[in-house]
């Protein structure tokens, strides 16, 4: 197993990580020669808790790439996201040239016999050299404890969730992040507070969030117009139909929103408010945000870090049974 990477510019990698660092302490990095996937899932409850999948283009991130693994050229590592971020931040602060990232055997702490040696425990090592004020060259070495996820291991069979039956695809405007602040205001202390997401393609699009407590209150916060909506059936995602003219912000790249009668129905997804709000940082900082909804089933936020569309971030929330 071998992993050797060199890079100069870590800014986009760092930004991506910082968007998801508050969600969980540990992440899985899956390196392949072409793609790096940054995956944040709940270890014990992969399907019910929200999942984040970031896909980054290796060639645009790293200047030199060397990946070798026994069967496939895929290496999956689990490590602490905070350590990774801290190392990257230190590198950026140091005004250095090249950052070398490589996989290394763990140093066996003394007092541990070779029996306890576990070859899956490794270190992801960051090395760069910097110079201080008196122009001394100092080489900096960071060793982040990491665990190699082997094939057959449950975490390694991590697959990107496939949402079947997308009912509604909605392009969210950049200003949408403000809505999270509204929702935050109504948040209560309870951990399991739920929010019902309602969406429809009618009248230029409608996206509403309903906070409700039986016999007490019902609050609806909604985005009522100017949404690019594409409604579809299982098989009709790509089908073209008349464009909803009420939408003034037509995107030339996505000129296929449709409002046929079958899709005119309202889509409903019940999720935990906490889960939904966790994506606020992503929505506030990303471009081209699309919300995909599967009625009573799931919702997915899909976006790109910047206009280059090289870094793709997906946030999956499975619906709660109502």
């Amino acid at each position: 197993m071998k992993l050797k990477l060199t890079t100069r510019d870590t800014e986009r990698l760092r930004t991506t990580l910082s968007l998801i660092s508050h969600v969980r302490k540990r992440i899985v990095l899956r390196f392949t020669p072409t793609k790096l996937s940054i995956i944040s899932v709940e270890e014990n409850n992969v399907t019910e808790e929200p999942q984040i999948w970031c896909k980054l283009n290796m060639a645009s991130l790293f200047d030199s790439i060397e990946i070798q693994s026994v069967k496939t050229d895929t290496i999956s590592l689990e490590l602490s996201i905070d350590s990774f971020l801290q190392a990257l931040k230190n590198y950026e602060k140091a005004n250095s040239h090249d950052l070398h990232i490589r996989l290394q055997k763990r140093d066996i702490p003394e007092g541990e016999t070779s029996k306890q040696k576990n070859s899956r425990l490794v270190s992801l090592v960051f090395v760069y050299s910097s110079s201080n004020e008196s122009s001394n060259s100092v080489s900096n070495i960071f060793r982040i404890p990491a665990k190699v996820l082997k094939h057959g291991h449950s975490s390694d069979t991590l697959d990107e969730p496939v949402i079947e039956g997308i009912d509604l695809i909605m392009r969210l405007p950049n200003e949408f992040a403000a809505l999270y602040k509204r929702l935050e205001k109504f948040k209560k202390s309870s951990q399991n507070e739920m929010v019902k997401i309602k969406a429809s393609a009618e009248n230029g699009g409608f996206l509403g969030f309903v906070l409700e407590e039986e016999d007490k209150y019902k609050v609806t916060i909604s985005w009522n117009r100017n949404l690019q909506v594409q409604a579809s059936h299982y098989d009709a995602i790509q089908s073209t139909s008349e464009y909803s003219e009420t939408n003034g912000r037509q995107d030339p790249g996505q000129d296929q929103a449709e409002t046929n009668s079958a899709a005119a129905k309202t889509c409903r997804v019940l999720v935990r408010l906490r889960d939904w709000n966790m994506a606020s940082k992503i929505v506030a900082n990303c471009e081209n945000i699309t919300l995909l909804l599967a009625n009573h089933h799931a919702c997915v936020l899909h976006c790109y870090l910047d206009d280059s569309e090289e870094i793709e971030i997906m946030y999956y929330i499975n619906a709660l049974k109502s």
Binding site: R26, S83, N118, N136, S137, V138, I141
Partner: peptide, 25 residues
Amino acid sequence: TNQIVKDNEYIKQPMSVAVALSIDD
């Protein structure tokens, strides 16, 4: 951090940091 930890605790350890500089500096 010099701890003896179980395997699944290993990645919770803080990363180790080192700097090296030449004696000439």
